[in-house]
């Protein structure tokens, strides 16, 4: 199908399956349009008015026909629904071991940070054949990360994280578009995704300006912002220990539990009083406006590291 003239490149693992569904739908559209147009033309010519006084016999309708042409579209849309939904569900979750890249949308540019610390703007370098998961947020309005050649798209929202993934199957440079209107230079918020051979990607990583890894930057921030003065590792501080927290359930004062994921960590930084960990009092200040989106991302990257460590023994209930 690569030669089909009206088709964007298929450069990811999901592209082909999406195109198959697309072609099926196109064939369906062509088929039904043709059948309906042809029938109408045929009727209009065959039954054209031959004399002004003509009075055709009345036909009330036909229940079997109505049932038939209710059933046929129902069956067809059922097939499409099952096909497209299963494809969607299959493509929803990234495979295990996907490389994680952090993306921030900002009027009107894309900022990218690689796990090893490399940053780039309006470009995204990725290795061929490896699944890549993007964790995305916006500093201002809603944007949308769209790579037509990969057939992937996801809104990038302020105040929360969305994620998407792809696995490139073709070397080259592909369009990256913002697909959610975001203001004056929306049309200029475009860039490229550059797919490289894995070893070439390694060389690119090494050759580009070396930055800190997000975890290292996060650790520094953790110290600079004084997080560690309350969140003592052994759990004796006024704030809960953060060891073994990320990725696990946290009990709240309300009695509920939440999963400590990116969203929860982010909320706890910006609106710390929203969900208080059981046994603690709400004294943490908000870091709203004091951290950039990238810094928040870095801190969360560090919290992920801490999350893999063994938590301290649970402290006694009721401690003030």
């Amino acid at each position: 199908m690569q030669g089909f003239p009206f088709q964007p490149e298929q450069a990811s693992t999901v592209a082909r399956s999406v195109d198959e569904l697309y072609l099926f739908l196109t064939a369906l559209t062509v088929f039904f349009s043709t059948v309906i147009f042809a029938t109408i033309f045929y009727f209009m010519i065959k039954y054209r008015r031959r004399s002004p006084g003509e009075r055709p016999k009345a036909i009330e309708g036909s229940l079997p026909l109505e049932i038939l042409w209710t059933a046929i579209p129902t069956l067809i849309v059922a097939v499409i629904f099952v096909w497209s939904s299963s494809l969607y569900v299959r493509n929803a979750e990234p495979p295990k071991g996907a490389m994680e890249i952090f993306v921030t949308g900002k009027q009107w540019m894309w900022k990218v940070q690689h796990p090893e610390g490399q940053r780039e703007i309006n470009e995204l370098h990725v290795p061929l054949g490896r699944p890549v998961k993007l964790t995305m947020t916006s500093e201002d309005v809603i944007h949308d990360f769209f790579v037509p050649a990969f057939r992937v798209k996801k809104d990038v929202l302020p105040g929360r994280y969305t994620s998407m993934w792809f696995q490139p199957t073709q070397l080259g440079t592909f369009h990256l578009f913002c697909a959610q209107y975001c203001g004056a230079f929306h049309a200029g918020m475009i860039g490229s995704v550059i797919v490289m051979e894995p070893d070439e990607y390694e060389r690119w990583l090494a050759g580009s300006v070396q930055g800190e890894s997000p975890e290292a930057a996060g650790e520094k921030l953790f110290l600079q912002q004084g997080c560690g003065t309350c969140h003592l590792a052994d759990g004796t501080g006024p704030g809960p220990s953060l060891l073994g927290v990320y990725g696990n359930q946290v009990k709240l004062t309300t009695g509920d539990s939440v999963l400590a994921d990116d969203g929860y960590m982010r909320e706890s930084l910006l609106a710390p009083r929203a969900k208080i960990v059981a046994g603690y009092i709400p004294i943490m200040p908000s870091f709203q406006g004091q951290l950039t989106e990238e810094q928040i991302g870095n801190l969360i990257a560090y919290l992920r590291v801490l999350g893999k460590l063994q938590p301290p023994k649970p402290k006694e209930e009721g401690k003030k």
Binding site: A271, P272, R273, A274, P282, S286, Q288
Partner: peptide, 8 residues
């Protein structure tokens, strides 16, 4: 108001 967060 403070316990619930001033923004909220």
């Amino acid at each position: 108001l403070a316990p619930g967060g001033l923004q909220h």
